[in-house]
Design a protein around this nucleic acid. Sequence first.
DNA 1: TTACAAAAATGAACAGTGTTCAAAAAAAAT
DNA 2: ATTTTTTTTGAACACTGTTCATTTTTGTAA
Lengths: 205, 205
Amino acid sequence: MSVADRKAREKEALKALILKGAKKLFLEKGIEQTTIRNIADEIDYSVGTVYVYFKDKNDILHNLHSIGFQDLGNCFQELFTIEDPMERLRKMGIVYIKFAIENQEMYDLMFNLKAPMEFLEKSDSDFWDEGIETFGLVKKTVEECINKGHFEGHDVESLSFMIWSLVHGMCCLEIRQRTKGVKFASPDTILFDGYNAYLKIIDKL
Amino acid sequence: MSVADRKAREKEALKALILKGAKKLFLEKGIEQTTIRNIADEIDYSVGTVYVYFKDKNDILHNLHSIGFQDLGNCFQELFTIEDPMERLRKMGIVYIKFAIENQEMYDLMFNLKAPMEFLEKSDSDFWDEGIETFGLVKKTVEECINKGHFEGHDVESLSFMIWSLVHGMCCLEIRQRTKGVKFASPDTILFDGYNAYLKIIDKL
DNA sequence: TTACAAAAATGAACAGTGTTCAAAAAAAAT
DNA sequence: ATTTTTTTTGAACACTGTTCATTTTTGTAA
């Protein structure tokens, strides 16, 4: 059994090595500019080997997208040391924006690129587990806020989706270069100015 | 002079023909799946001709992105028959979402794809005129609201950006398939449920 | 150690992409 | 009718993701 075990471990290790190399190149030169040949070169294996361990490029992208959600999930989990749900919700947005800006390529992969979703569609399961889980943490926090008497007249899901959209939209516009060139009075702080406008609003609700 | 004039007109016509063919194919089979050869075939010209009239693929995408903004701009202009700025702002979001959902590929091109912005970067002008103009209509409406006593304690630009982000975020998540697979209680209406949550909020401000 | 079988890694080859540019065809000017 | 200018062409180039027969490496048993 020990040989088969080791082989299984080695397979996992090489899979991880490929993903590590891919992530490195993605961060260095962008996802679109990274080719399978680049990845193979980076880890000193041949192109063919990459295709032994991954079905296609979307497979790699989907795996990396999942890794991104683990990272974001960890950031979110830390927030649950905060008891007050309103305070947690406020911080959650900050953490989300910070994550998006500091990991633009990964964020793009997680929430913008079609590839991971296309891989999902062509696979057996139809559910976006990473999305469900992470959005669940937002919903949970919003629900606690409502239970404490905030957000009267709103229901959990609509409000959570609205908040997600709001923060995602800001990150999206920034990452996809739509905030540049629009001539904001203070372009460097517009993201946090926008977020502060949102904070002012939910505090009144 | 008349020969040169006719030639100039013919050049414009062929340019428009290429864009028309490109747009048709984009809507039919998606932007990523459309090649320059496809476009050339569609209008019965050779690949080379396309490159006489457009610098590269980004050039075509940027031109089509501008056309999209003309369409959206027209939709927005119609809203200015509404006197009450609050009512106009409410309808503006609806029109925006409707446009995004009914013209997904065009919306993607206008607000999501990197291509049009990359073309802008490599051109002489650094300003995103289409974005400035369209966002200007939002800012103008928000400003009128503020002048009428709404949104106390908020400044035009931050709030306008927040609203844009909110609506854009919803459209974005929908178009890039992030609302599917997240197991919403009512997936078909989540976009408008989210928008209604936003309406409830701004009415109170 | 050697012989064989199973597993893993390879890279040339394929069909496709955006892009270029010398040559050909068409139009205009003489 | 001839020359010049403009417009159009499509083969060719360097690149992409992907495949798969072949080679290399590894594990097992005599």
